[in-house]
Write a protein that binds this DNA or RNA. Structure first.
Length: 597
RNA sequence: GCCCCGGUAGCUCAGAGGAUAGAGCAGUUGCCUUCUAAGCAAUUGGUCACAGGUUCGAUUCCUGUCCGGGGUACCA
């Protein structure tokens, strides 16, 4: 934090002793490029606190700052006070103590929370696709971000491993699988099971088509309505009932196929670097909500409708919600109610976050409404982190229609593209396995960065032709800045340069000072991102920081022969500190950095 | 119908009431005997959907209209 801003705040207080501004901090803004200055104090923002005119406050600030030891120059435009700092003070307050600067991002102890975050939540009937990858990336990055600012974060997965859609893959396997296995077929387990899911849907469509042709009276009905008219549909329904009844051969098949999928998911998660603290299985939790509904019925919180369904009345805005079907079976929200209470009982978090697509906004409003109605004190600390769908240039992704971008294929494609790039640039003659490790980091970094660059709530467009990029506003751009710094530091070390006690005051070039000013905003940006649960803030920041470094790289040679030793050391220290910020940011986004590019 | 989200450059997207609205890509043009060109620099490109309102100031907040997307299940 800038000393001169604290001093200015104190000065304001002393100049307006009768005003009572309360707790406040002067939040600096970065002075726009075309203005004469580095930091801006926007007096418009604070004039009201002191019950004075913006111009007046600015004038008085200009006067005070022009006499301040840290200040080189002040200029004022309307109520904007633009300040140019002297280098020694600028670096003293920022990059000279980079550990201290990074520490500023941590929340005060009393503001830290125990946060349980649930994400991914895949079904075990098919492999994960780009939509899941967005979910996973958002989930892991937000978890990491919340941790970074000092919270205790518990990452949870809730796997949807039961239900009619799971039975579909099982039926198709029974009929067409011929006893194959991932080993025999040489296919990743989740993909193999997904193949049968696709096969199932093809069979179902065929039967529905035949049915419509044979019975004109059914032609008007929708596919969903015709499901139980088909032989395969009835068989699937029967299998679900057999599963719920615990029929041994169904359970056995279910366990076998699920184990294939779980092995596949484990690989996908490993590629992304995801580690959950706990994985709940819906097969173990899907009955949980029922007893709670029974209790609520008893207590009068819920009531029984004429047709026998149990409902919860949530008032005018949310209306009435069915909590239990008239036949006594649970619905989606029954399970969610149960698992939410279980998660709370297991971990006692202060707050819970669900990373789930925006099509479920209404569902979560209702769920939170039910929990509030039931009077849980933590019910106002529940957040649905709703993210938009990923569309393709051809339209929406649909598993059944095979228009999905498969996660594993995408990872491989990114890695291959990066690998080709690594090979072209392989001046050190590194072996392929080293290049492949680099390529994995670059490819995954590019993908995650791309997904995080969008504000979570935007419905984003993924164009395979242009979204897979390693140039411009991308992860590799930031990684590359890091790699450049690493390379310089390695060379400095080899030359025996000790830059542990640099003279920061030597760094007076615009590009050098700009790095310090940029760095000053990092902690605030992290906190803002955490508060908004929006990693795109961090992404944007890192791009700007990397850009500032690349300008410095061009304009201020660090190790060139004609640079005096003192300046070399100061620039080395500067680069090392910038690297710490970039590394911290990428790590917060769960993005790695290769050793070379 | 009602509810939520969006409409900003040719395209994909940023813009927590502030200064002359930005970035990347695409286009045009320079820079590799110089710490790695996955880079740097320059340049073209705008009725911030439309109409009102709030105020010192609105792309940002409010109201209305138009256009897209999602939701409005005893699906998940």
């Amino acid at each position: 934090m800038f000393q001169l801003l604290n001093d200015l705040a104190a000065h304001w207080r002393s100049m307006f002793p009768e005003a009572n501004p309360g707790e406040f901090r002067i939040v600096p803004e970065k002075c726009p490029e075309n203005m004469d200055g580095e930091l801006t104090v926007n007096a418009f923002r604070y004039a009201r606190l002191f019950k004075t005119a913006p111009d007046k406050l600015a004038e008085l600030s200009e006067e005070f700052l022009s006499g301040h030891a840290d200040v080189e120059k002040v200029s004022r435009v309307k109520a904007f006070v633009n300040v140019t700092l002297n280098p020694a003070a600028l670096f003293r307050d920022t990059l000279a103590d980079v550990a201290g600067l990074l520490g500023e991002a941590e929340l005060d102890v009393e503001k830290r929370k125990r946060i349980l975050i649930e994400y991914s939540a895949p079904n075990t009937n098919k492999p994960q696709h780009l939509g899941h990858v967005r979910n996973n990336t958002l989930g892991m990055a937000v978890s990491s971000l919340l941790k970074r600012v000092g919270n205790d974060v518990i990452q949870i997965n809730l796997v949807n491993d039961r239900g009619i859609h799971i039975c579909k893959s099982m039926i198709a396997y029974q009929r067409f699988g011929e006893g194959t296995t991932p080993e025999k077929a040489g296919r990743k387990g989740d993909h193999l099971v997904g193949d049968f899911y696709v096969r199932y849907n093809a069979e179902l469509s065929k039967e529905i088509k035949e049915l419509r042709a044979a019975q004109p009276d059914l032609a008007e009905k929708s596919d969903e309505e015709l499901f139980l008219f088909t032989e395969i549909g009835r068989a699937t329904q029967q299998m679900l009932q057999d599963w719920e009844a615990g029929k041994p051969e169904v359970i056995e098949l279910w366990k076998k196929m699920n184990s294939w999928v779980f092995a596949g998911f484990a690989e996908t998660y490993k590629s992304m670097g995801i580690k959950f603290d706990h994985t709940y299985l819906e097969s173990e939790t899907y009955l949980l909500g029922k007893d709670i509904v029974a209790k609520c019925l008893e207590s009068g919180a819920f009531c029984r409708r004429d047709d026998g369904a149990v409902i919860c009345d949530l008032g005018k805005k949310l209306g009435q919600k069915v909590m239990l079907r008239s036949d006594g079976t649970s619905v989606y929200i029954t399970q969610d109610l149960g698992t939410t209470l279980k998660k709370f009982a297991d971990y006692h978090p202060d707050s819970m976050i669900w990373v789930v697509g925006d099509e479920q906004i209404w569902h979560f409003q209702v769920l939170f409404g039910v929990l509030k109605k039931l009077g849980y004190p933590w019910a106002d600390q529940l957040y649905h982190l709703a993210y938009g769908m990923v569309n393709l240039p051809s339209g929406k992704m649909k598993s059944r229609e095979g228009t999905v971008v498969d996660a594993d294929n995408l990872f491989a494609e990114m890695s291959d593209l990066a690998f080709a790039g690594c090979r072209e640039r392989n001046s050190a003659g590194e072996p392929d396995d080293v290049l492949r490790r680099r390529a994995d980091i670059i490819g995954m970094g590019a993908l995650k960065f791309m997904l995080l660059k969008f504000n979570p709530k935007t419905t984003m467009m993924f164009d395979p032709q242009s979204s897979i990029k390693f140039e411009g506003d991308t992860g590799p751009y930031v990684q590359y800045a890091c790699v450049r710094i690493h390379s310089i530091l390695r060379k400095a070390e080899a030359a025996g340069l000790d830059y542990s006690a640099p003279d920061w005051g030597l760094l007076s070039a615009k590009a050098e000072k700009n790095l310090a000013i940029m760095a000053a905003f990092y902690p605030v940006q992290l906190q803002m991102a955490a508060e908004k649960l929006d990693c795109s803030v961090v992404v944007e920041y890192l791009l700007n920081m990397a850009k500032a470094f690349n300008q410095f790289y061009r304009e201020c040679p660090v190790l060139a022969g004609d640079v005096p030793d003192d300046l070399k050391k100061a620039r080395l220290a500067l680069a090392a500190s910038v690297l710490k910020v970039l590394e911290d940011g990428l790590a917060t986004l769960t993005i790695g950095i290769p050793d070379a590019m």
